[in-house]
């Protein structure tokens, strides 16, 4: 039961981390290596608004999500737009942006154990005899709502359908009047907001430290590779596989092997089925 409950929680948090990365890659084919940095920056922005400006928590969250979205859009508009389509340059420039943000934050004094966000709701319940705090339950609910919402969005709205079309064949979408640069910019904004959502859900459970930016990046890449790059549904399922594998490892082997699971999953996937669970073979060549 413990495994089931904590496996689910862990999986949902992995899915939250990976969704933004998967979405951006799926739509614009830009591997956003600044994803982890966007995640962390959202945490710090929320903290700053909450602690320095003294605004209510909810306002702080929505403000920082907006900041994140704008940041993503700016990043695309001024930097990535010039290198889109050139895989190596995309990786280098997005990783450079990520590094600059993360190390800039570290340099700016955002380090140590002093940065924490409050949980949404104190207290806990017992699910099948396992103690679970309310915040983690909220996280699971938000994660599942988010995936459901994304599914509805991409299948039933005009914008979502256009993004779906562009993800499959950018040029064909262009022939129908779907401006690919504009859509890629939107996708980047969405991805950044999703990174922010992940941050607001996960960060209150621990300290905000710069290092977790790298952790989030690795986890989202793992989730996306196992799920098949570009398929956010695949990423969601892969999050469950890796999430449960991690918890099983913690329970039966030892908690310091937890990180190895994700890396092992990447390697195994690349050996056994390079296109991932839901990816397509044709994407093999643009694998990172």
């Amino acid at each position: 039961m413990e495994i089931l409950v904590y496996g689910t929680i862990n999986s949902v948090s992995l899915a939250l981390m990976g969704l933004g990365f998967a979405m951006v890659y799926g739509i614009s084919r830009v591997p956003n290596f600044a994803h982890g940095a966007l995640y962390i920056i959202c945490g710090f922005v929320t903290w700053t608004i909450l602690q320095k400006l003294g605004l209510p928590y909810v306002v702080a969250i929505f403000l920082s999500l907006a900041v994140n979205g704008i940041l993503g859009i700016l990043m695309y508009r001024f930097i990535l737009i010039r290198v889109r389509g050139m895989n190596i340059s995309e990786i280098i420039s997005s990783y450079a942006i990520g590094l600059a943000i993360l190390e800039g934050l570290r340099y700016g004094g955002f380090r140590g154990m002093t940065y924490t966000l409050p949980v949404f709701m104190e207290g806990m319940v017992f699910i099948g005899g396992v103690p679970v705090d309310y915040h983690r339950i909220i996280m699971v609910i938000v994660g599942i709502l988010l995936v459901g919402g994304l599914w509805l969005f991409t299948h039933y709205t005009r914008l979502g359908l256009a993004l779906q079309g562009m993800a499959q064949d950018e040029r064909a979408a262009l022939m129908l009047g779907i401006d690919s640069d504009f859509m890629a910019m939107l996708a980047m904004g969405f991805g950044a907001v999703l990174a922010g959502v992940a941050a607001t859900m996960i960060l209150p459970l621990g300290n905000i430290v710069v290092e977790s930016g790298y952790h989030v990046l690795i986890m989202s890449i793992a989730v996306c590779i196992v799920g098949g790059l570009g398929s956010w549904i695949g990423a969601f399922f892969a999050a469950f596989i890796i999430g449960f594998a991690q918890i099983l490892t913690v329970v039966f082997i030892g908690s310091h092997f937890q990180m190895v699971v994700a890396l092992l999953a990447i390697i195994l996937t690349l050996i056994l089925k390079p296109s991932g669970l839901f990816g397509q073979q044709k994407e093999l060549e643009d694998r990172v």
């Binding site: 299948h155 005009r158 359908l161 256009a162 779906q164 064949d169 979408a173 009047g177």
Partner: peptide, 26 residues
Amino acid sequence: IVLCPERRRLFKESSVMENLRIGGYL
């Protein structure tokens, strides 16, 4: 000016209805 390209280039992973609705973007 709308082009219906050579080899059709449909959105293969989407349903027929979704293809048509993506076409209706404008």
